[in-house]
Amino acid sequence: MPAKTYVQTTINGEHVDFLCEPRQSLLECLRDVIGLTGSKEGCNDGNCGACTVVLDGRIVTSCLVLGVEVEGREITTIEGVACGSTLHPVQTAFLENAALQCGICTPGFIVASKVLLEQNPDPTEHEIRFWLANNLCRCTGYDKIVRAVQDAAVKMREAEV
């Protein structure tokens, strides 16, 4: 067994430290070492987006980041999107627009959509589709997901005013 590395990082605003093997992905560390199973593994090679997290403000597929790489960095996972007992507007919009069916891709879509709307509060349909093109959904055909992001954008802009 390879020697483990001690990693200190920030996850969802909390200081977290853990031990990981050099070969373990961030996704594996989140799920199996730290116990945050909201990020999902659909392919383990960066093509499905179900493991999308925010790393220092950028969205990444956590299966393509090594656990040892997150030393001293900041991560937001799906578990950190809601604020206490209040859902994020993107989460509410996904529920109210029926934008999930099986729900396995939903954490990745919500994390990616949240960052989109932080960077672009009024995206066009094309911009939403372009941004979310690294997230596969096999259930919805994307229609209701696009509508949910549009709806969340409106709600978030109204809240800003």
């Binding site: 799920r31 945050l36 199973t37 909201g38 990020s39 999902k40 593994e41 996972t77 799906i78 578990e79 999107v81 809601a82 859902l87 989460q91 996904f94 529920l95 109210e96 029926a98 999930l100 729900g103 396995i104 939903t106 954490p107 919500i110």
Partner: peptide, 21 residues
């Protein structure tokens, strides 16, 4: 009618337990 699904909150917050979880 179109109520919000009962398992919805678990599925938008990452709490829902799938097989691998």
């Amino acid at each position: 009618t179109r109520p919000v699904r009962h398992d919805g909150t678990d599925k938008v917050t990452g709490r829902a337990q799938y097989g691998a979880d």
